[in-house]
Amino acid sequence: MASFDIPYLEKALAKVGIHVQTDNAAASTLLIGAFVLSAYYIASPFISYIRLLLSLFVLPGTSLSKFGKKGSWAVITGASDGIGKEYALQIARKGFNIVLISRTQSKLTALAEEISSKYKVETKTLAMDFSANLDVDFDQMRALLDGLDVAILINNVGQSHSIPVTFAETSQKEMKDIITINCMGTLRTTQIVVPGMIQRKRGMILTMASFGGLSPTPLLATYSGSKAFLQQWSSALGSELAPKGVHVQLVQSYLVTSAMSKIRRASAMIPTPKDFVRAALGMIGRSGGAQGVAFTSTPYWSHGIMHWAMTTFLGTHNRFLIDQNKAMHESIRKRALRKAERDAKKQ
Protein backbone atom coordinates (compact mmCIF):
# COMPACT_ATOMS: atom_id res chain seq x y z
CA MET A 1 0.00 0.00 0.00
CA ALA A 2 3.05 2.22 0.05
CA SER A 3 2.37 3.28 -3.54
CA PHE A 4 -0.88 5.00 -2.48
CA ASP A 5 -0.63 8.50 -0.97
CA ILE A 6 -3.22 8.23 1.81
CA PRO A 7 -3.02 11.88 2.96
CA TYR A 8 -3.47 12.98 -0.65
CA LEU A 9 -6.59 10.83 -0.97
CA GLU A 10 -7.93 12.28 2.27
CA LYS A 11 -7.47 15.82 0.98
CA ALA A 12 -9.01 14.99 -2.41
CA LEU A 13 -12.08 13.52 -0.77
CA ALA A 14 -12.32 16.45 1.68
CA LYS A 15 -12.56 18.87 -1.28
CA VAL A 16 -15.81 17.21 -2.32
CA GLY A 17 -17.17 17.15 1.21
CA ILE A 18 -16.13 13.62 2.22
CA HIS A 19 -14.12 13.58 5.46
CA VAL A 20 -12.38 10.37 6.53
CA GLN A 21 -9.90 9.37 9.16
CA THR A 22 -7.26 6.82 8.16
CA ASP A 23 -5.19 6.46 11.31
CA ASN A 24 -5.34 2.67 11.15
CA ALA A 25 -4.67 -0.04 8.54
CA ALA A 26 -8.33 -1.07 8.14
CA ALA A 27 -9.48 2.45 7.38
CA SER A 28 -6.62 2.88 4.92
CA THR A 29 -7.58 -0.33 3.13
CA LEU A 30 -11.21 0.78 2.88
CA LEU A 31 -10.16 4.17 1.50
CA ILE A 32 -7.92 2.57 -1.13
CA GLY A 33 -10.70 0.15 -2.08
CA ALA A 34 -13.18 3.00 -2.44
CA PHE A 35 -10.71 4.91 -4.60
CA VAL A 36 -10.09 1.91 -6.88
CA LEU A 37 -13.81 1.23 -7.26
CA SER A 38 -14.51 4.89 -8.00
CA ALA A 39 -11.75 4.98 -10.60
CA TYR A 40 -13.13 1.85 -12.26
CA TYR A 41 -16.66 3.28 -12.24
CA ILE A 42 -15.46 6.46 -13.92
CA ALA A 43 -13.32 4.61 -16.47
CA SER A 44 -15.84 1.84 -17.19
CA PRO A 45 -17.81 3.66 -19.95
CA PHE A 46 -14.57 4.54 -21.71
CA ILE A 47 -13.33 0.94 -21.53
CA SER A 48 -16.69 -0.28 -22.79
CA TYR A 49 -16.58 2.20 -25.68
CA ILE A 50 -13.14 0.94 -26.74
CA ARG A 51 -14.47 -2.63 -26.67
CA LEU A 52 -17.43 -1.48 -28.77
CA LEU A 53 -15.19 0.04 -31.43
CA LEU A 54 -12.92 -3.00 -31.53
CA SER A 55 -15.87 -5.35 -31.84
CA LEU A 56 -17.64 -3.33 -34.56
CA PHE A 57 -14.69 -2.23 -36.68
CA VAL A 58 -11.53 -4.21 -35.92
CA LEU A 59 -11.88 -7.74 -34.55
CA PRO A 60 -13.02 -10.48 -36.96
CA GLY A 61 -15.96 -12.76 -36.29
CA THR A 62 -15.94 -16.55 -36.32
CA SER A 63 -15.90 -18.11 -39.77
CA LEU A 64 -19.00 -20.09 -40.76
CA SER A 65 -16.71 -22.96 -41.70
CA LYS A 66 -16.28 -23.68 -37.97
CA PHE A 67 -19.87 -24.90 -37.80
CA GLY A 68 -20.01 -27.13 -40.84
CA LYS A 69 -18.12 -28.72 -43.70
CA LYS A 70 -18.60 -28.97 -47.45
CA GLY A 71 -22.01 -30.49 -48.02
CA SER A 72 -23.45 -29.16 -44.74
CA TRP A 73 -26.82 -27.44 -44.75
CA ALA A 74 -28.20 -24.14 -43.49
CA VAL A 75 -31.89 -23.83 -42.62
CA ILE A 76 -33.49 -20.38 -42.98
CA THR A 77 -37.04 -19.61 -41.87
CA GLY A 78 -38.88 -16.60 -43.25
CA ALA A 79 -36.57 -17.07 -46.22
CA SER A 80 -38.45 -15.70 -49.20
CA ASP A 81 -38.01 -11.93 -48.67
CA GLY A 82 -35.85 -9.29 -47.03
CA ILE A 83 -33.39 -10.35 -44.35
CA GLY A 84 -34.22 -14.07 -44.66
CA LYS A 85 -33.57 -14.03 -48.41
CA GLU A 86 -30.24 -12.28 -47.86
CA TYR A 87 -29.17 -14.83 -45.26
CA ALA A 88 -29.93 -17.57 -47.78
CA LEU A 89 -27.95 -15.89 -50.57
CA GLN A 90 -24.94 -14.95 -48.48
CA ILE A 91 -24.67 -18.31 -46.71
CA ALA A 92 -25.02 -20.13 -50.04
CA ARG A 93 -22.15 -18.00 -51.33
CA LYS A 94 -20.04 -19.59 -48.57
CA GLY A 95 -20.74 -23.03 -50.04
CA PHE A 96 -23.53 -24.29 -47.77
CA ASN A 97 -26.55 -26.13 -49.12
CA ILE A 98 -29.76 -24.29 -48.26
CA VAL A 99 -33.18 -25.27 -46.88
CA LEU A 100 -35.68 -22.47 -47.49
CA ILE A 101 -38.80 -22.34 -45.31
CA SER A 102 -41.49 -19.73 -45.75
CA ARG A 103 -45.17 -19.34 -46.59
CA THR A 104 -45.25 -18.81 -50.37
CA GLN A 105 -44.07 -21.69 -52.56
CA SER A 106 -43.67 -19.58 -55.72
CA LYS A 107 -41.21 -17.24 -53.97
CA LEU A 108 -39.33 -20.19 -52.47
CA THR A 109 -39.04 -21.88 -55.88
CA ALA A 110 -37.73 -18.71 -57.53
CA LEU A 111 -35.15 -18.17 -54.78
CA ALA A 112 -34.06 -21.82 -54.81
CA GLU A 113 -33.46 -21.63 -58.57
CA GLU A 114 -31.48 -18.39 -58.16
CA ILE A 115 -29.29 -19.91 -55.44
CA SER A 116 -28.65 -23.13 -57.36
CA SER A 117 -27.78 -21.22 -60.51
CA LYS A 118 -25.46 -18.69 -58.84
CA TYR A 119 -23.67 -20.80 -56.27
CA LYS A 120 -23.98 -24.39 -57.49
CA VAL A 121 -25.26 -25.71 -54.16
CA GLU A 122 -28.25 -27.92 -53.36
CA THR A 123 -31.53 -26.45 -52.18
CA LYS A 124 -34.71 -27.76 -50.57
CA THR A 125 -37.93 -25.85 -49.90
CA LEU A 126 -40.87 -26.15 -47.55
CA ALA A 127 -43.93 -23.90 -47.80
CA MET A 128 -45.69 -23.58 -44.46
CA ASP A 129 -47.71 -21.02 -42.56
CA PHE A 130 -46.10 -20.66 -39.12
CA SER A 131 -49.20 -18.87 -37.79
CA ALA A 132 -51.20 -22.11 -38.17
CA ASN A 133 -48.81 -24.00 -35.85
CA LEU A 134 -49.88 -27.31 -37.40
CA ASP A 135 -48.24 -30.54 -36.26
CA VAL A 136 -48.36 -31.82 -39.84
CA ASP A 137 -46.20 -28.90 -41.03
CA PHE A 138 -43.56 -29.53 -38.40
CA ASP A 139 -43.69 -33.25 -39.17
CA GLN A 140 -42.94 -32.39 -42.79
CA MET A 141 -40.07 -30.18 -41.67
CA ARG A 142 -38.66 -33.01 -39.54
CA ALA A 143 -38.90 -35.42 -42.48
CA LEU A 144 -37.28 -32.91 -44.85
CA LEU A 145 -34.31 -32.36 -42.51
CA ASP A 146 -33.92 -36.01 -41.51
CA GLY A 147 -30.42 -37.23 -42.38
CA LEU A 148 -29.11 -33.76 -43.34
CA ASP A 149 -25.99 -32.31 -41.72
CA VAL A 150 -27.67 -29.09 -40.57
CA ALA A 151 -24.83 -26.86 -39.44
CA ILE A 152 -26.66 -23.50 -39.34
CA LEU A 153 -30.18 -22.51 -38.32
CA ILE A 154 -31.35 -18.96 -38.99
CA ASN A 155 -34.54 -18.26 -37.01
CA ASN A 156 -35.78 -15.33 -39.05
CA VAL A 157 -39.52 -15.93 -39.35
CA GLY A 158 -41.46 -13.17 -37.63
CA GLN A 159 -44.45 -10.88 -37.67
CA SER A 160 -45.21 -7.45 -36.26
CA HIS A 161 -48.44 -5.45 -36.06
CA SER A 162 -49.87 -4.21 -39.36
CA ILE A 163 -49.74 -0.68 -37.91
CA PRO A 164 -48.93 0.51 -34.37
CA VAL A 165 -51.92 -0.15 -32.12
CA THR A 166 -52.64 -0.03 -28.40
CA PHE A 167 -52.85 -3.39 -26.69
CA ALA A 168 -56.52 -2.83 -25.81
CA GLU A 169 -57.33 -2.39 -29.52
CA THR A 170 -55.19 -5.29 -30.79
CA SER A 171 -57.26 -7.93 -32.53
CA GLN A 172 -57.28 -11.45 -31.14
CA LYS A 173 -56.03 -12.81 -34.47
CA GLU A 174 -53.08 -10.41 -34.72
CA MET A 175 -52.10 -11.03 -31.11
CA LYS A 176 -52.26 -14.81 -31.58
CA ASP A 177 -50.38 -14.75 -34.88
CA ILE A 178 -47.52 -12.64 -33.50
CA ILE A 179 -46.99 -14.90 -30.49
CA THR A 180 -47.42 -18.11 -32.48
CA ILE A 181 -45.04 -17.11 -35.30
CA ASN A 182 -42.37 -15.30 -33.31
CA CYS A 183 -42.28 -17.62 -30.30
CA MET A 184 -43.76 -21.05 -31.03
CA GLY A 185 -42.50 -21.18 -34.62
CA THR A 186 -38.97 -20.40 -33.49
CA LEU A 187 -39.04 -22.84 -30.58
CA ARG A 188 -40.50 -25.77 -32.54
CA THR A 189 -38.09 -25.32 -35.45
CA THR A 190 -35.10 -25.13 -33.12
CA GLN A 191 -36.21 -28.24 -31.24
CA ILE A 192 -36.22 -30.17 -34.52
CA VAL A 193 -32.71 -29.04 -35.46
CA VAL A 194 -30.90 -29.07 -32.09
CA PRO A 195 -30.56 -32.85 -31.50
CA GLY A 196 -28.50 -33.32 -34.68
CA MET A 197 -26.20 -30.44 -33.76
CA ILE A 198 -25.66 -31.90 -30.30
CA GLN A 199 -24.89 -35.29 -31.80
CA ARG A 200 -22.32 -33.79 -34.21
CA LYS A 201 -20.97 -31.47 -31.47
CA ARG A 202 -21.05 -28.44 -33.74
CA GLY A 203 -23.51 -25.96 -35.19
CA MET A 204 -24.86 -22.43 -34.92
CA ILE A 205 -28.34 -21.18 -34.06
CA LEU A 206 -28.84 -17.54 -34.96
CA THR A 207 -32.14 -15.90 -33.97
CA MET A 208 -33.32 -12.50 -35.18
CA ALA A 209 -34.42 -10.15 -32.41
CA SER A 210 -35.39 -6.47 -32.44
CA PHE A 211 -34.93 -3.24 -30.52
CA GLY A 212 -38.67 -3.63 -29.94
CA GLY A 213 -37.77 -6.41 -27.52
CA LEU A 214 -34.71 -4.62 -26.17
CA SER A 215 -36.75 -1.68 -24.90
CA PRO A 216 -40.51 -1.78 -24.14
CA THR A 217 -42.35 -0.37 -27.14
CA PRO A 218 -45.85 1.05 -26.59
CA LEU A 219 -48.30 0.49 -29.47
CA LEU A 220 -46.27 -2.60 -30.39
CA ALA A 221 -46.72 -4.23 -27.00
CA THR A 222 -47.39 -7.80 -28.15
CA TYR A 223 -44.58 -7.75 -30.71
CA SER A 224 -42.24 -6.13 -28.16
CA GLY A 225 -43.05 -8.83 -25.62
CA SER A 226 -42.49 -11.63 -28.13
CA LYS A 227 -39.04 -10.33 -29.01
CA ALA A 228 -38.14 -9.87 -25.33
CA PHE A 229 -39.11 -13.52 -24.85
CA LEU A 230 -36.65 -14.52 -27.59
CA GLN A 231 -33.86 -12.62 -25.79
CA GLN A 232 -34.37 -14.57 -22.56
CA TRP A 233 -34.89 -17.89 -24.31
CA SER A 234 -31.88 -17.52 -26.60
CA SER A 235 -29.50 -16.56 -23.79
CA ALA A 236 -30.65 -19.52 -21.70
CA LEU A 237 -30.33 -21.84 -24.72
CA GLY A 238 -26.84 -20.52 -25.38
CA SER A 239 -25.72 -21.51 -21.90
CA GLU A 240 -27.21 -24.99 -22.30
CA LEU A 241 -25.61 -25.68 -25.69
CA ALA A 242 -22.18 -24.05 -25.33
CA PRO A 243 -20.64 -27.12 -23.59
CA LYS A 244 -21.99 -29.28 -26.43
CA GLY A 245 -20.16 -27.32 -29.14
CA VAL A 246 -23.24 -25.48 -30.45
CA HIS A 247 -23.00 -21.69 -30.73
CA VAL A 248 -26.16 -19.66 -30.05
CA GLN A 249 -26.42 -15.98 -30.95
CA LEU A 250 -29.31 -13.57 -30.75
CA VAL A 251 -28.99 -10.76 -33.31
CA GLN A 252 -30.40 -7.39 -32.29
CA SER A 253 -31.40 -4.84 -34.90
CA TYR A 254 -33.01 -1.46 -35.18
CA LEU A 255 -34.86 -0.75 -38.42
CA VAL A 256 -33.90 -2.36 -41.75
CA THR A 257 -35.51 -1.63 -45.11
CA SER A 258 -38.07 -4.42 -45.52
CA ALA A 259 -41.73 -5.24 -46.05
CA MET A 260 -42.18 -5.59 -42.28
CA SER A 261 -40.73 -2.16 -41.43
CA LYS A 262 -42.45 -0.60 -44.49
CA ILE A 263 -39.30 1.50 -45.03
CA ARG A 264 -37.84 1.56 -48.53
CA ARG A 265 -35.08 4.17 -48.34
CA ALA A 266 -31.80 3.15 -46.68
CA SER A 267 -29.78 5.51 -44.48
CA ALA A 268 -26.96 5.38 -41.95
CA MET A 269 -29.41 4.18 -39.30
CA ILE A 270 -31.51 2.00 -41.61
CA PRO A 271 -29.42 -0.39 -43.73
CA THR A 272 -30.58 -2.61 -46.55
CA PRO A 273 -31.01 -6.33 -45.77
CA LYS A 274 -27.86 -7.03 -47.78
CA ASP A 275 -25.71 -4.70 -45.68
CA PHE A 276 -27.27 -5.83 -42.42
CA VAL A 277 -26.77 -9.55 -43.11
CA ARG A 278 -23.19 -8.95 -44.25
CA ALA A 279 -22.51 -7.32 -40.87
CA ALA A 280 -24.30 -10.07 -38.93
CA LEU A 281 -22.42 -12.92 -40.61
CA GLY A 282 -19.14 -11.04 -40.26
CA MET A 283 -19.55 -10.71 -36.50
CA ILE A 284 -20.44 -14.20 -35.35
CA GLY A 285 -19.18 -14.49 -31.77
CA ARG A 286 -18.76 -10.71 -31.37
CA SER A 287 -21.09 -8.61 -29.23
CA GLY A 288 -20.94 -5.34 -31.16
CA GLY A 289 -23.23 -2.97 -29.30
CA ALA A 290 -24.58 -5.65 -26.96
CA GLN A 291 -21.82 -5.17 -24.39
CA GLY A 292 -22.27 -7.49 -21.43
CA VAL A 293 -25.38 -9.26 -22.82
CA ALA A 294 -24.70 -12.99 -23.02
CA PHE A 295 -25.02 -14.77 -26.38
CA THR A 296 -26.16 -11.56 -28.08
CA SER A 297 -24.82 -9.33 -30.85
CA THR A 298 -25.84 -5.98 -32.28
CA PRO A 299 -23.67 -6.20 -35.41
CA TYR A 300 -24.58 -3.30 -37.69
CA TRP A 301 -22.36 -0.35 -36.78
CA SER A 302 -24.99 2.36 -36.23
CA HIS A 303 -27.33 -0.02 -34.41
CA GLY A 304 -24.43 -1.14 -32.23
CA ILE A 305 -23.51 2.39 -31.23
CA MET A 306 -27.16 3.18 -30.52
CA HIS A 307 -27.57 0.02 -28.38
CA TRP A 308 -24.39 0.80 -26.45
CA ALA A 309 -25.45 4.41 -25.79
CA MET A 310 -28.92 3.35 -24.63
CA THR A 311 -27.64 0.80 -22.14
CA THR A 312 -24.70 2.92 -20.94
CA PHE A 313 -26.43 6.24 -20.38
CA LEU A 314 -30.17 5.58 -20.12
CA GLY A 315 -30.95 1.93 -19.56
CA THR A 316 -33.26 0.08 -21.91
CA HIS A 317 -36.23 0.34 -19.51
CA ASN A 318 -35.83 4.06 -18.85
CA ARG A 319 -39.19 5.89 -18.68
CA PHE A 320 -38.00 8.71 -20.94
CA LEU A 321 -36.95 6.20 -23.61
CA ILE A 322 -40.27 4.33 -23.35
CA ASP A 323 -42.22 7.59 -23.69
CA GLN A 324 -40.17 8.57 -26.75
CA ASN A 325 -40.98 5.17 -28.29
CA LYS A 326 -44.65 5.79 -27.54
CA ALA A 327 -44.66 9.23 -29.16
CA MET A 328 -42.91 7.91 -32.28
CA HIS A 329 -45.36 5.06 -32.77
CA GLU A 330 -48.39 7.26 -32.07
CA SER A 331 -47.18 9.47 -34.91
CA ILE A 332 -46.66 6.46 -37.20
CA ARG A 333 -50.19 5.24 -36.38
CA LYS A 334 -51.74 8.61 -37.22
CA ARG A 335 -49.97 8.72 -40.58
CA ALA A 336 -51.02 5.14 -41.36
CA LEU A 337 -54.66 5.84 -40.53
CA ARG A 338 -54.67 8.98 -42.67
CA LYS A 339 -53.19 7.01 -45.58
CA ALA A 340 -55.82 4.28 -45.17
CA GLU A 341 -58.54 6.94 -45.21
CA ARG A 342 -57.18 8.49 -48.40
CA ASP A 343 -56.92 5.09 -50.07
CA ALA A 344 -60.52 4.26 -49.09
CA LYS A 345 -61.78 7.46 -50.71
CA LYS A 346 -60.03 6.58 -53.98
CA GLN A 347 -61.93 3.30 -54.31
Rank of each mutant, 00 (worst) to 15 (best):
I76R: 08
R188L: 03
L37S: 12
V157L: 03
Q347L: 13
V248H: 05
E330Y: 08
S239T: 14
T170A: 08
G78C: 02
L148A: 01
A236Y: 01
R202N: 05
I18H: 06
G285L: 01
T316C: 15
M269N: 08
G84H: 00
L59K: 10
K118L: 02
M283N: 14
K201I: 04
L214V: 09
H329F: 13
D149V: 03
A151P: 05
T298W: 04
T123Y: 00
A110S: 10
R333Y: 04
T62F: 12
R202T: 05
A74I: 06
V293H: 06
A88V: 07
P218K: 02
S267G: 01
L255W: 14
G147V: 02
D323I: 15
M260R: 09
A110R: 09
K339C: 08
F35G: 15
L281E: 01
A143E: 11
N97Y: 02
L64N: 05
G185K: 01
S297T: 06
A127N: 03
N155A: 03
E86H: 05
T257S: 01
K334H: 10
D177S: 11
L206Y: 10
A259P: 13
I76T: 05
Q172M: 14
P164Y: 02
L53S: 08
F96P: 02
D343A: 07
L250Q: 09
E114F: 00
L241G: 04
I98L: 04
P195C: 00
S160Y: 08
G196V: 03
L255T: 12
A336N: 05
L321M: 06
S106F: 11
G33V: 08
K85Y: 10
D81A: 11
Q324T: 09
A340N: 09
E113L: 10
L53H: 07
I83N: 00
K124S: 09
A336D: 04
T217V: 05
F313I: 04
K274A: 15
T170F: 08
L53Q: 07
L337S: 07
